[in-house]
Simulated assay, not measured.
Amino acid sequence: MAIPLQTSPEQHLADAAAAMRRGDTAGALAAIGLAEQASPHDPNIKMQRALALRMSGAYPAAIEALDAALAVDPYNFLALLSKGALVEKLSGERLAARVYQNALKLAPPDDKLAPQLAAPVARAREVVERVQAELEAFLRANMGPVESAGSELARARLDEAIGIYAGRKRVYNHEPLLLHYPRLPAVPFYPRELFPWLPELEAATPMILEELQGVLAGRMSDFSPYIAFPPDVPANQFEELNHSPRWSSLFLWKDGERQDAVCESCPRTAALLERLPMAHQPQFAPTAMFSALDAHTRIPPHTGSTNTRLLTHLPLILPGPARFRVGNEIREWKMGEAWVFDDTIEHEAWNDADKLRVILIFDVWNPFLEPGERDLVAALMSARNRFYAG
């Protein structure tokens, strides 16, 4: 007597799909049950059960089926996205947002997303963003004014913490390319009161601009591309600006060396910089330069070499809107206003104007370093260079 062939799980699922097309939910669930008996640990079969239950309006049972699929495969993007939609129907956006957040972490890039998933993913993002905004507003309304936190640093710290706690902002840490000095605070823009010389620098803006204009009139050709990687170094995010005059610089000090010819062209600017507490690290710092960015040009996100020193920006030519981001904070340059920031925190810049933007950039010691530390940090970095030199 011939032994009947067993029906495969795939055939049972095909039968279930045919039943669903006929509107026969009971038949579909029966076929899916047979598929599960044959392959009890297949998450795709559990996903089919969830689909059939959802089509029948049995949402709680559909969520249970999705949870069973996630128990087998916790990184199942489709299961999480589907569960988020069901939770939204049953319990509202706030609970759904938690599920959607996990789904979005696993979502493929938009250009690799299946067309039929574009709308559900967009809905997930919409819900998450709305709930996070509502949460942030609720937190601010129920905790008291940020202004009562204290100093500028305390207010900025608390304000950013609220955004991070609500999920609307990300955490930015030091990401130095060369030396990470531990136990220094990761502060995007440092409080002005730590730099009592800032008013003197800002008051000198017209004088520095006058000398810069003389340089631009006679030595603009001396500006060179700021990004100039050798052929064997990947340009990565700087590919568009590599060896490009769209972001160019003219150095007054470079890697600790005074550029005498440029300083002689800008004698009062050079004298001012020599009075300021620039970071002196042989072969590394100070660096001081005029930085020129062409119209409608963006400097992509990047980080600097070490958190033992900070960068100062003073705008000199601002033909229109120009923005600068450090971590979660975006500021616009304003004439006569300088700032000091930690460039080992991810930062980027935009010149949104129709003409060239020029700022003065120079580095200063991190104010949280003690004088003895400064000397030893300089010795530490020089020793590393000597080690590799031979």
Rank of each mutant, 00 (worst) to 15 (best):
His296Lys: 13
Phe229Thr: 02
Leu104Thr: 02
Pro319Ala: 11
Glu202Thr: 03
Pro199Leu: 11
His41Cys: 11
Asp260Cys: 11
Met220Arg: 12
Ala2Asn: 10
Asp15Leu: 13
Leu273Val: 14
Leu201Trp: 08
Leu178Met: 10
Gly27Phe: 04
Leu209Met: 12
Leu34Gln: 08
Lys334Gln: 13
Ala17Ile: 07
Gln101Lys: 06
Pro196Arg: 12
Val99Trp: 00
Ser265Lys: 10
Tyr165Glu: 04
Ile3Ala: 12
Asp354Arg: 14
Lys169Trp: 03
Leu184Pro: 01
Gln37Met: 03
Ala107Asp: 10
Val215Gln: 07
Ala124Leu: 04
Leu80Trp: 08
Asp260Gly: 07
Gln259Ser: 11
Lys169Gln: 06
Ala137Pro: 05
Ala18Gln: 06
Trp333Leu: 04
Ala124Cys: 10
Arg374Thr: 00
Ala141Pro: 13
Tyr226His: 13
Ala69Arg: 12
Lys254Arg: 14
Arg94Lys: 09
Glu348Leu: 05
Val262Phe: 15
Asn76Val: 07
Glu136Ala: 11
Pro185Cys: 08
Val87Ile: 06
Leu318Asp: 08
Tyr165Pro: 00
Phe341Trp: 03
Arg168His: 04
Asp24Arg: 06
His174Thr: 15
Tyr165Thr: 09
Asn236His: 10
Asn102Cys: 06
Leu158Lys: 09
Phe229Ile: 05
Ala379Pro: 02
Arg130His: 05
Lys89Trp: 03
Leu177Thr: 08
Ala61Met: 02
Asp67Pro: 15
Phe251Ile: 12
Pro300Trp: 15
Pro9Cys: 01
Ile32Arg: 02
Gln101His: 13
Ser148Leu: 09
Ala292Ser: 14
Arg94Pro: 15
Gly23Glu: 09
His180Asn: 12
Glu348Asp: 04
Arg183Asp: 15
Ala261Tyr: 12
Ala58Ser: 13
Glu373Asn: 00
Trp339Phe: 06
Leu252Trp: 04
Pro315Gln: 06
His174Ala: 07
Gly150Tyr: 03
Ala16Gln: 09
Pro43Lys: 05
Pro319Asp: 06
Glu210Pro: 00
Ala61Glu: 12
Leu369Cys: 02
Leu70Pro: 12
Met289Pro: 08
Ile63Pro: 01
Val358Trp: 07
Cys263Ala: 02
Leu356Phe: 06
Val377Asn: 00
Phe138Ser: 09
Asn366Ser: 09
Lys83Met: 11
Met47Glu: 08
Leu194Asp: 01
Val171Arg: 14
Lys169Glu: 07
Asp363Gly: 10
Leu311Ala: 09
Pro43Glu: 04
His302Val: 09
Arg21Thr: 12
Trp247Gly: 00
His313Asp: 06
Val358Asp: 11
Leu66Ser: 01
Val131Lys: 04
Ala154Val: 05
Tyr190Asn: 09
Arg386Met: 15
Ile45Asp: 01
Lys254Ser: 02
Leu113His: 06
Gly304Met: 03
Asp232Trp: 15
Pro321Arg: 14
Ile63Glu: 01
Ala58Gly: 07
Val128Glu: 01
Ala85Gly: 14
Pro286Met: 01
Glu264Gln: 08
Leu316Ser: 00
Trp253Lys: 11
Leu276Tyr: 14
Tyr226Lys: 07
Asn236Gln: 15
Glu332Asn: 11
Leu90Ala: 06
Phe138Lys: 14
Asn173Ala: 03
Gly57Pro: 02
Pro286Thr: 12
Pro277Ile: 00
Asp352Ile: 02
Asp15Pro: 11
Phe138Ile: 04
Pro245Ala: 04
Gly84Tyr: 01
Leu276Asp: 03
Phe77Met: 05
Ala349Asp: 02
